[in-house]
């Protein structure tokens, strides 16, 4: 049974899924950059939430939930509301549409990001593939 999003189990499942996904491994083979996700509370999420994903040359090297006060820094910071993150994970909102209509904010190297849009889209595809139930759903 798929893990509920957001949870540490979901993150670990994402790591395992990425590491066995051949398409991701190929498209992201040159990607070097970890990502911090900042999820703002909306809907069923009542507290801000952060999680960290370390992506390197087509692999996911590590994941963790990030408690308040943790000083981990990442190459990229992605910020979105919980409701919009869920829409992306459920395929109801295209990730590029989220970026270009101000529903998802990105900070980090723009040259790197714009050179690697296909990698970003493959990462999202992997996250969508493992997402079943989300917080707030029965």
């Amino acid at each position: 049974m798929p893990s509920i999003f957001p949870s540490e189990e979901w993150l670990l499942e994402l790591k395992d899924y990425i590491n066995q996904d051949e398409k991701y491994a190929h498209i992201a083979r040159n990607w070097e950059g970890d990502v911090m996700f900042h999820i703002e509370p909306t809907g069923a999420l009542i507290e801000p939430l952060c999680f960290y994903v370390d992506l390197w040359h087509g692999e996911c090297r590590g994941v963790k939930m990030v408690p308040t006060g943790d000083l981990t820094e990442a190459a990229f910071d992605l910020t979105a509301s919980y409701d919009n993150i869920v829409k992306v994970l459920k395929g109801q909102l295209d990730p590029m549409q989220a970026m270009l209509t101000r529903k998802l904010q990105v900070k980090g190297s723009m040259p790197y990001m714009m050179r690697n849009v296909p990698t970003v889209l493959e990462f999202v595809r992997c996250a969508q593939d493992i997402t079943g139930q989300v917080l707030g759903e029965n």
Partner: peptide, 26 residues
């Protein structure tokens, strides 16, 4: 202020109008 923080603005400021070129090529 909002436009200054926007994703597309960041791309255009850092990379110019050719910021999307790699993706367009893909």
């Amino acid at each position: 202020r909002a436009l200054h923080q926007d994703n597309l603005t960041a791309s255009l400021r850092d990379l110019g109008s050719a910021g999307g070129a790699d993706y367009f090529d893909y």
